[in-house]
Simulated assay, not measured.
Amino acid sequence: MAKKHSKRYQQLLEKIEKGKIYSIDEAVKKVKELKSAKFDETVELALRLGVDPRHADQMVRGSVVLPHGTGKTVRVAVFAKGAKADEAKECGADIVGAEDLVEQIQNGNIDFDIAIATPDMMGLVGKIGRILGPKGLMPNPKTGTVTMDVCQAVKNAKAGQVNFRVDKKGNIHAGIGKASFSEEALKENLETFVAQINKLKPAAAKGRYIQHAALSLTMSPAVELNTQELMDIKG
């Protein structure tokens, strides 16, 4: 059964030219015009890549720090001991711990958005992998969240680092800012994110890399982006 959209959603849909492929400039301008919620909506980018994530050599995963941040206040947890724990606190981590932090999480207390760990803590963190993994919170070297440089990792997270991973169908979704951001800030964030996606194109990927792309707000319909323009973005 087809999903029935609200009257407000239908009105927003009428503002989008049916069948039109938008340039980045046009898409950013259009999504800002679609703002209708009482809260500051997130600007969301959706990409479908020409990869088969079932093959390890076609997995696209990583992180990128957006130049204008995400507009979201991020709470950061760090698994560390001794001097590294002190360093994490000094650099702005909201929660720092080891066995005590693992116990909190096992008890269902997850009060953070990003988790970082020093490599020596991963044996301990592995015990809660089943809890953190499905929530996308498991520290990983590929996203820079398993590192000895906990200070830089905390700063990146606070500055607007976005972690991404292609799903089983080749899709990547990311929040690249807020509706209140300027068009220029949203454009720069989008281009920075896409440049990183292009940089990570697997050698084994065949055919068109970015097959579909769309930009939307939390509560709005999506506008379709010109995929060739996106693939031409270089870091």
Rank of each mutant, 00 (worst) to 15 (best):
A83I: 07
A37F: 04
M121I: 03
T227S: 02
V31A: 08
D149C: 08
S23V: 12
V102T: 06
A204K: 13
C91A: 14
R61P: 04
G175K: 02
G97T: 01
G177N: 07
K18D: 14
G160A: 09
M148H: 09
G170A: 04
G82D: 10
K199M: 08
A159G: 08
A115Y: 08
A80N: 00
A204D: 07
H68C: 12
P67R: 09
Q152L: 13
V78E: 00
V96Y: 00
R165I: 05
K32A: 11
T192R: 10
E26L: 04
K127C: 08
K158S: 09
I210D: 10
V64Q: 02
V96M: 01
V28S: 06
A159V: 11
V194P: 12
K169A: 14
I116T: 06
I172T: 04
A98V: 00
V146R: 00
P134A: 05
I131N: 02
K142M: 14
T70H: 07
A93V: 02
V166W: 00
E90Y: 06
L230F: 13
L190W: 02
L137C: 08
T70L: 02
A83Y: 03
A27F: 05
K84A: 04
L12M: 11
K30M: 15
L190G: 06
P221F: 03
V74I: 15
P67V: 14
G144H: 09
G62D: 07
T145F: 08
K30A: 07
R8E: 10
L124P: 03
I233Y: 14
E87A: 12
G97A: 04
E103N: 05
E184Q: 13
K178M: 07
H68S: 12
K18Q: 15
T70W: 03
M59S: 13
A205E: 13
L101F: 01
P53I: 04
D167K: 01
A157T: 02
G69D: 05
Q58S: 13
G82V: 06
L217P: 06
G170H: 01
K38T: 09
N109P: 01
K18G: 10
D86Y: 08
A204R: 07
G136Y: 02
N140A: 11
K4Q: 14
I110Y: 03
A204Y: 11
K15M: 15
G126L: 04
R48I: 12
A153P: 03
K155H: 07
